[in-house]
């Protein structure tokens, strides 16, 4: 059976790919945010599993905690921006947002 580190990092890679796939493919602004969130989860798992593997769990926890705080602010701001976009254009469709091309 795989050892713990390898298993965890395998998950990290899968989740990261899933998040990036979601970002590439999605049309709906909210789903793009979900993609960012999935990527964020993979980072949390990466940090903590690295900490467990090298014995520094507590350092990893502090990093993870700080990171969670930062990400929640980013998500809140992103949602605010999406709501504003919806208010201005009545749409959350990414494909409709190409007014700026010259």
């Amino acid at each position: 059976m795989m050892d713990l580190l390898r298993l965890n990092w395998f998950l990290v890679v899968i989740l990261a790919f899933l998040g990036l796939y979601c970002l590439l493919v999605s049309r709906n602004l909210l789903r793009l945010l979900i993609g960012i969130e999935i990527l964020s989860k993979s980072c949390i798992l990466a940090l903590v599993s690295s900490g467990v593997a090298i014995g520094k769990v507590n350092t990893a926890q502090t990093l993870a905690i700080t990171m969670i705080v930062v990400e929640v602010v980013v998500v809140a701001v992103a949602l605010g921006l999406i709501i504003r976009a919806y208010g201005a254009t009545r749409s959350i469709d990414m494909w409709k947002m190409n007014q700026l091309k010259d």
């Binding site: 998040g19 993609g35 960012i36 990527l39 940090l47 900490g51 990093l63 992103a78 999406i82 976009a85």
Partner: peptide, 22 residues
């Protein structure tokens, strides 16, 4: 929005790099 959806994943990639570095 365009800046957001490129910059936020970039920061997370940096963070993955930090985890690997760690």
């Amino acid at each position: 929005l365009k800046y957001l959806f490129l910059s936020a994943p970039a920061s997370l990639l940096i963070l993955l790099g930090v985890a690997l570095l760690f």
